[in-house]
């Protein structure tokens, strides 16, 4: 492994340098590139959650796409309803012969409800799911397999209920958010700022959380769950809380992604995308918050570049990346920067 720790004098200024670059981006990039960057940053928010549960909690989730999707669909429902003249149904419902709005769509016409749902629905869903599995002390590989089944079930359910979810094509064609036109000048930059702020906020909050007593207990439970029990702690609430926080971040990331991409569909949240989310973090470094953001940006940039030119090459490349990172570089890029001592 190349040891990059000799660059460490740069380390204290590096975060500020990156932040300055992030703030400057809207002035330097074309609106297309800015939109792309904003999408990847939204994915970075999700990646931060994976560092919390996978890196520090030892909980591998192959189902983060579900929570990403919950946030994404929440905001998509709102935008679908907001663009409609009163009393009309979204186009795809009309096409599939529905005559009335499903009851669970209706509250999403309220912006406040939608914002609350983006945060609360994934968090609650994550907490309930994690509690159901962890409180009976099922974990590790079993948990990973169950989360994968969850993401398969969720994506299949959305595809099959075409009349109320938009099915395989998902929801798209959004024109405005909270009364602001998505195509109007300045909206792109504004949404970018919001994404950057939330990303930085999540980063700082998780840094604090991981350094706190909570973080210490989470790592202790990862390394020796039974020892933690013998010391008089119950690790279950810690793991459930960590999973719920990661689900919340995934939901927020999903909502922002949907705003930037203008679409949410099962193809973005199913089994394969859910595992791709893990590869971002694996490459960036599962223990490092900054690494996860860098990983999410780099992998998605590479994906964008490779898959537009050679679509079939991307799956080979991703497969090889998984094998390479896990076998030879378990600490990811962040491990290379920090050197062996880290």
């Amino acid at each position: 492994m190349p040891d990059l720790s000799r660059f460490s004098p740069l380390k204290p200024v590096l975060p500020w340098l990156l932040l300055a670059l992030g703030i400057a981006a809207p002035f330097a990039l074309s609106s297309y590139d800015l939109n792309l960057l904003a999408r990847f940053m939204a994915m970075g928010i999700l990646a931060l959650g994976l560092v919390l549960i996978w890196g520090h909690g030892g909980i591998l989730s192959l189902g983060q796409g579900v929570f990403f999707g919950l946030g994404g669909y929440a905001i998509a429902l709102h935008m679908k309803l907001a663009d409609l003249p009163a009393g009309e149904l979204p186009d795809f419902m009309v096409w599939s012969g529905r005559e009335s709005l499903p009851f669970w769509w209706a509250p999403f016409s309220s912006p406040a409800f939608t914002l609350a749902a983006i945060v609360i629905v994934p968090t609650l869903a994550g907490a309930l799911f994690a509690w159901a599995v962890f409180h009976r002390r099922v974990g590790g590989t079993y948990f990973a397999l169950i989360t994968q089944a969850l993401s398969l079930a969720f994506a299949t359910l959305i595809i099959s209920r075409q009349d109320v979810t938009g099915g395989f094509n998902g929801l798209t064609d959004f024109y405005s958010i909270f009364g602001v036109g998505l195509a109007s000048p300045g909206t792109g930059s504004m949404l970018y700022w919001i994404t950057l702020t939330l990303l930085c906020g999540a980063f700082v909050a998780l840094r604090w959380l991981l350094a706190s007593r909570f973080g210490i207990l989470l790592r202790a439970a990862r390394d020796g769950e039974n020892r933690v029990r013998f010391l008089g702690y119950n690790p279950t609430p810690f793991k459930v809380a960590a999973f719920a926080i990661a689900a919340m971040l995934a939901g927020i990331g999903g909502a922002l992604f949907t705003l930037h991409a203008g679409v949410v569909s099962p193809a973005l949240i199913g089994v394969v995308p859910s595992i791709e989310m893990v590869v971002w973090v694996a490459i960036g470094g599962r223990y490092s918050l900054a690494g996860a953001i860098v990983g999410a940006l780099l992998v998605n940039l590479a994906r964008d570049a490779v898959s537009s030119a050679f679509p079939e090459l991307w799956l080979y490349l991703m497969g090889a990346l998984f094998i390479f990172v896990v076998t030879l570089l378990p600490r990811g890029l962040a491990g290379m920067v920090k050197g062996k001592a880290a």
Binding site: W54, G58, G140, T141, A144, L315, Y316, L321, P330
Partner: peptide, 15 residues
Amino acid sequence: RPLDTLLATWGVSLI
């Protein structure tokens, strides 16, 4: 490393 095996073999599966 059971969880890493999961990920590496997922890579094999994709390929």
